[in-house]
Lab assay of single mutants.
Amino acid sequence: HNLTITQGKLFFHYNPKLCLSEIHKMEEVSGTKGRQERNDIALKTNGDQASCENELLKFSYIRTSFDKILLRWEPYWPPDFRDLLGFMLFYKEAPYQNVTEFDGQDACGSNSWTVVDIDPPLRSNDPKSQNHPGWLMRGLKPWTQYAIFVKTLVTFSDERRTYGAKSDIIYVQTDATNPSVPLDPISVSNSSSQIILKWKPPSDPNGNITHYLVFWERQAEDSELFELDYCLKGLKLPSRTWSPPFESEDSQKHNQSEYEDSAGECCSCPKTDSQILKELEESSFRKTFEDYLHNVVFVPRKTSSGTGAEDPRPSRKRRSLGDVGNVTVAVPTVAAFPNTSSTSVPTSPEEHRPFEKVVNKESLVISGLRHFTGYRIELQACNQDTPEERCSVAAYVSARTMPEAKADDIVGPVTHEIFENNVVHLMWQEPKEPNGLIVLYEVSYRRYGDEELHLCVSRKHFALERGCRLRGLSPGNYSVRIRATSLAGNGSWTEPTYFYVTDYLDVPSNIA
């Protein structure tokens, strides 16, 4: 807008934040220059609390790290170098490059900038070799853009010569660093050979998330399962459950009422301010606690030095998902009996873990797994792929695949051998790939016309006998059925096997 004052003059007093240069501009645009008398524009009460600059400061050096910015700028000295009290560095987070010096300023003089007072450097006698002032900004957020400017702080001049310097606002972004852990990993099994893994992005990506790394490792069953005799009275049979499938998407929606109208769909109840505040506090606490764990609990591995020492970490090797089922080394339970199943799973520490690289999504279907087997899954978020990966501390989750139908069934015939004193040795093959492992066998036998009897055969007993022995049988026709019990439950009964026990007292003698 054009402003013209045809008559009258300007009068400025007691404006401590208004620089004289701005008042002189007002004289020019209003056409009143030359009308004012000496005392109409006070030299001592206008701009006496402001830094009124008329020179431009330029930054000469900028260096960044993930949490620091090192700045240096060209030296500046007023005509009387004693008038320079120091520099004021202003900075704040700036997602967009549209910041002005006066953003967030209120009537009390406060604003949204963080201000650092910096002492002037030592003055050199040689004007050509003056030290460049600077400042190291610490405690910054990774991968965050900051708006920065600097200006001088000078003393009051009796001659009211307006001098000083100020830089333009520059924008500097800190470097990326390792992201925080992925949030809320959930693993479920939808079949006997697959596990579905879902997660949420890290709360602090500290860069642009480029991919996720998912490692999985087959877990050995508890050692007590191999040692305890679950045929003993009072000892509860062990059981394991597989990871249940995901709930429906509708039930997972946030901010939804727990109660549904019987007449149909209901609208979600909005969260109160107290609920939102509580969630923010919980989120802040979780982030602080995660940072504490990362800094205190997890110790970084030592990389190899120039002395030739090897990095103890196993090298990563990509495998196809079809090879995942046989990740671990199978060892027989008892070496003397080769027909026992290889369900003991000690994992070799030198073995390469299978892994998958996930790009542009937060889910993965891990296939080719062994049925009813526990897996430990390790999830890392990465925001750099080359020249070397920059990934987060791992988040861990466990899951067990679903049982395989008929995996616990005894394959092959049940054979028998009759000894003296009416002892019958029953023999059968253990299931080759049971659900988890076989903890015991149930032997059901009966003599024709009598009630059915049951015998429990422990895992250890089966390994020693290759089956079991029935003792003290009365003469007669017998039928026997056997079924295995694994961590997933009972298998199917075998087809009945028949044998006849004679009275050993009636056996004919070869003595003449």
Rank of each mutant, 00 (worst) to 15 (best):
N206W: 14
G207A: 02
T210P: 04
H211E: 02
Y212Q: 00
Y212R: 00
V214N: 02
V214T: 05
V214M: 09
V214E: 00
F215R: 13
F215E: 03
W216A: 06
W216M: 14
E217V: 04
E217T: 11
A220G: 14
E221S: 14
D222C: 13
S223R: 07
F226N: 11
F226A: 07
E227L: 11
E227F: 13
L228N: 07
L228C: 15
Y230W: 06
C231E: 02
C231F: 03
L232C: 14
L232A: 10
L232N: 14
K233P: 09
G234M: 10
P238E: 03
R240T: 13
T241A: 12
T241L: 05
W242S: 14
S243I: 09
P244Y: 14
P245A: 07
E247P: 12
E247I: 05
E247F: 08
E247R: 12
E247W: 08
S248A: 09
S251M: 14
S251K: 13
S251E: 10
K253V: 01
N255M: 13
E258N: 08
Y259H: 05
E260K: 02
D261P: 11
A263K: 03
G264E: 05
S268G: 12
S268F: 04
T272K: 03
T272G: 07
T272I: 05
D273F: 13
Q275I: 11
I276W: 12
I276A: 12
E281P: 05
E282C: 09
E282A: 14
S283F: 14
S283W: 03
S284P: 03
F285E: 13
F285M: 13
F285D: 10
R286Y: 07
T288N: 14
T288Y: 15
T288G: 10
F289N: 09
F289H: 13
E290H: 10
D291R: 09
D291Q: 12
N295P: 15
V297S: 08
V297W: 08
P300Y: 04
P300V: 04
P300C: 11
P300Q: 09
R301M: 06
K302Y: 10
K302N: 11
S304C: 04
S305D: 09
G306E: 11
G306W: 07
T307H: 12
T307R: 12
T307A: 06
G308W: 04
A309N: 12
A309K: 11
A309P: 09
E310Y: 14
D311T: 14
P314I: 03
R316Y: 02
R316V: 11
K317V: 13
K317C: 07
K317R: 09
R318F: 13
R319F: 09
S320C: 09
S320P: 05
S320N: 11
L321D: 04
G322N: 04
G325A: 15
G325W: 13
V331S: 14
V331W: 14
V334G: 10
A336L: 11
F337G: 14
P338Y: 09
N339K: 10
S341G: 08
S341T: 07
S341Q: 15
S342H: 11
S342P: 05
V345L: 13
T347H: 12
P349Q: 02
E350Q: 12
E351Q: 05
E351D: 11
F355V: 12
F355C: 12
F355K: 13
V358R: 05
V358S: 04
V359E: 08
E362M: 09
E362F: 09
S363E: 14
S363T: 11
V365S: 10
V365I: 01
L369Q: 03
T373Q: 15
T373P: 00
T373K: 06
G374C: 14
Y375L: 04
R376T: 10
I377C: 06
E378K: 08
E378W: 09
Q380M: 05
Q380P: 00
A381I: 04
N383H: 12
D385Y: 08
T386R: 14
T386I: 14
P387F: 11
P387W: 12
E388K: 08
S392N: 02
S392K: 04
S392Y: 03
S398K: 11
S398L: 12
S398P: 15
S398G: 02
R400E: 08
R400S: 09
M402A: 08
M402K: 15
A405S: 11
K406R: 05
A407T: 12
I410L: 09
T415M: 14
H416K: 06
I418P: 08
I418E: 08
F419W: 15
F419V: 05
F419S: 09
N421C: 02
N422V: 04
N422G: 05
N422K: 12
V423S: 07
V423Q: 05
V424M: 07
V424L: 11
H425T: 06
H425R: 12
H425Y: 13
Q429F: 13
E433I: 15
P434E: 02
N435P: 01
G436S: 02
L437V: 04
I438F: 02
V439S: 08
V439Y: 14
L440S: 07
E442A: 05
V443W: 01
S444Q: 07
Y448P: 13
G449V: 00
E451H: 15
E451Q: 14
E452L: 10
L453C: 03
L455F: 10
L455H: 11
R459V: 15
R459F: 07
K460G: 05
K460D: 05
F462K: 08
A463Q: 11
E465I: 08
R466A: 07
C468I: 07
L470M: 09
R471P: 10
R471Q: 15
P475D: 04
N477P: 05
Y478A: 00
R481D: 00
I482T: 02
I482G: 00
T485F: 06
L487D: 07
L487A: 05
A488Y: 14
G491A: 08
G491F: 02
S492M: 11
W493V: 03
W493H: 00
E495V: 03
P496F: 10
Y498T: 07
Y498H: 12
V501H: 04
V501M: 06
D503P: 15
D503T: 07
Y504T: 15
P508W: 03
S509M: 08
N510A: 15
